[in-house]
Design a protein around this nucleic acid. Sequence first.
DNA 1: CGTCCGTTTGAGGTTTCTCAACGAGGGTGG
DNA 2: CCACCCTCGTTGAGAAACCTCAAACGGACG
Lengths: 289, 289
Amino acid sequence: MRAPQSVRFPERVPARDVHREVCLHTMATNDMSPGARALLTKLDLFAKLDPQARRTLAGLLDRPQVSYERGQDLMTQGALRRDSYVILTGWAARSKTLPDGRRQILSFLTPGDAVGLFGAITPVATSSVTALSDLTAAPFAPTAIVRTIARSPQLAAALVWAAAREQEIMGEHLVSLGRRSARERVAHLFLELWARLKVRGLAGGDQLQVPLTQQIIADALGLSVVHVNRTLRQLAAEGLLAVKRESVALLDIRQLHQVTGFDEDYLMHHAMPQDLAAELARLVTHGPG
Amino acid sequence: MRAPQSVRFPERVPARDVHREVCLHTMATNDMSPGARALLTKLDLFAKLDPQARRTLAGLLDRPQVSYERGQDLMTQGALRRDSYVILTGWAARSKTLPDGRRQILSFLTPGDAVGLFGAITPVATSSVTALSDLTAAPFAPTAIVRTIARSPQLAAALVWAAAREQEIMGEHLVSLGRRSARERVAHLFLELWARLKVRGLAGGDQLQVPLTQQIIADALGLSVVHVNRTLRQLAAEGLLAVKRESVALLDIRQLHQVTGFDEDYLMHHAMPQDLAAELARLVTHGPG
DNA sequence: CGTCCGTTTGAGGTTTCTCAACGAGGGTGG
DNA sequence: CCACCCTCGTTGAGAAACCTCAAACGGACG
């Protein structure tokens, strides 16, 4: 058994101005809270939500937004659940910690992502969610999700889509940890984050702002910090990417794709398929009968 | 980059009589198809479904069951999706394969589990589902899930619970691949399977029937077959478990728990929490208004 | 009786880890 | 303003875990 390389998440470090802006689609969102808009931006990738769905969404997220500093927990493994959130600005990580301190990051959460969306289902949190940068979030009651599902079938379908998308990302993550080399894991992670951010307008060109320390990358990829460092430097030496303070430039995307066999289909950037849309439309017009 | 150790899944091998029986709870299930009963058995862990939910479930699964031989795909990565299924008897594995042949198993599917439950969302399958033993399954149309969600809020909540539970299992799997040693991974896998089967009445005592070859275990745990073999033999030598043909006996459960820090809470064997149940009941009685 | 699939074992190699130390930057307090 | 932390990144050296290759074994089945 190896000793834990994992280290506490950073705490009480002042803010940096990474990604404080949520990119909003040009819809009539004036009447909505920031939380509703952020979630809408994401769900909109899947389907244009109808007025009923948008009202329901607005009703769900009508509480004032809250702020967290880098290193604080929005949710703590083993503790009773409190609120659920939609992230407005900043990054967070969902992680699990073993009794001896080893830590594994399960997923990265970016603006528009939900924290504990289905959290009402277990009273005690099985993972922690920690702010990786200073962040703001829109809180909502965990049980409200049930009401939401019942009130708008379209919204329910969109939420299921969001859950399925998350599962796809976790699946690809599982492949990385189980079958990819350190080099492939690192390259794959950056390609994924780049693709995720780009589709929401949070990254442009080949540049990408990420508030990730090498320790955090290590905990996400199941590697030691030392080896992440060496891998990063090797990829940089080959001219594939350039790492600065808290940003990364993907210099040779074609070759990065080749290194990892990256195929962004699993991220599901696409709209609802035809048959599903038809089924939903029928329901919305004629009722569930 | 390591060469692929992964090997094709076994094919066309005759059936073995492992787990051909689904344990049914003692409810009035006479009017339901086998598929509906199997899924009900699982969803029942979460909440006693009301008549409306049970009617909807029966309507979803009214097609005749189908059979697959060991090694056949119920769903193939990269191919267009066909039906979704509820597994009735036998085991399956969901896996992803890299271009060079390396394979990672994402999850094991046992009776009552759904294949491609949310599959309508992507037209092309991002993973394969392969029969690990001969199996039978109840098919349903992928888009039917939308109707189901709209017709019964209780069923919708139960399905969300099932999805959340799956995500928890994947999360723990991620911890294994990222931060646990081979020894811990193997012990953890068996404890998980044992707990999952026991709660549905598919395993008794410390014995557990699993149609897993060492190659399959390796592909699930991100290890080589050779190392799985050595790890298995080491655990056996220490008297922690005994592996026979296709069954495993957990000889020292206390120490196995200690080896892995296993805590079965993440499997969510429990019923719906109080507040969620109350919320749902209100909806069912008063409507979503 | 031969073949096939899965398991087992040996030997040597590679990746990744641990331990340890140093450097660079930024914030903080004297 | 400078000295001192503290965090994070970087580098070296040796060790451990795990992998590959190769070969042999055993049971099941034709």
